[in-house]
């Protein structure tokens, strides 16, 4: 399994955990990306300033990585732009309906021992695995 990258996965995961812990420690907020983004989008909402600051950091983090490492971003997309639009709509609507995504439920909610987050995380991981099975194998993929 030469595609298995445990060291970088662990370093990256630790950084994500430190980021979410810093946010709670200093600002008392949950680092849920879908909640932070929609908080900026939704009209007449307060707290747009701190959310925008977080998002600026999120977008600049990879830019910093490129600057320091001298390597480009590895982003390989299989989905066509059209399929990406369908997926994006489902993710945008679904994360609002379900009150969170991988970060808010998976990293922060589980750390708060929230039973809603345990369930949501299990449901979206299993659903995503079934979706990938259908698109990669059942529908004539490799």
């Amino acid at each position: 399994m030469d595609y298995f990258t445990p060291i970088s996965a662990i370093i990256g995961g630790l950084l994500i955990g430190v980021a979410a812990t810093l946010m709670l420690w200093t600002h008392g907020r949950i680092t849920g990306i879908s909640g932070i983004v929609s908080g900026v989008l939704i009209p007449n909402n307060t707290g747009k300033v701190w959310r925008t600051c977080f998002l600026a950091g999120l977008v600049l983090g990879p830019v910093g990585y490129i600057a320091i490492s001298g390597q480009g971003l590895t982003i390989v997309t299989q989905a066509s732009p059209l399929l990406s639009v369908v997926a994006g709509l489902a993710v945008g609507f679904g994360t609002r309906l379900g009150s969170g995504c991988t970060s808010g439920h998976g990293i922060c909610g589980i750390a708060r021992l929230s039973k809603r987050s345990f369930l949501a995380t299990a449901v979206f991981i299993v659903t995503a695995m079934i979706t990938v099975y259908i698109t990669q194998h059942a529908m004539g993929g490799s």
Binding site: I33, S34, V37, T77, Q78, A79, L83, S84, V86, A87, G88, L89, A90, V91, G92, F93, G94, T95, R96, L97, G98, S99, C101, T102, S103, H105, L119, A120, T121, V123, F124, I125, V126, T127, A128, M129, I130, T131, V132, T135
Partner: peptide, 16 residues
Amino acid sequence: GAVLFGIGWGLAGLCP
């Protein structure tokens, strides 16, 4: 919501 999110995540390999 989690089901819808999972479908989108699996289709594109992207979450927020």
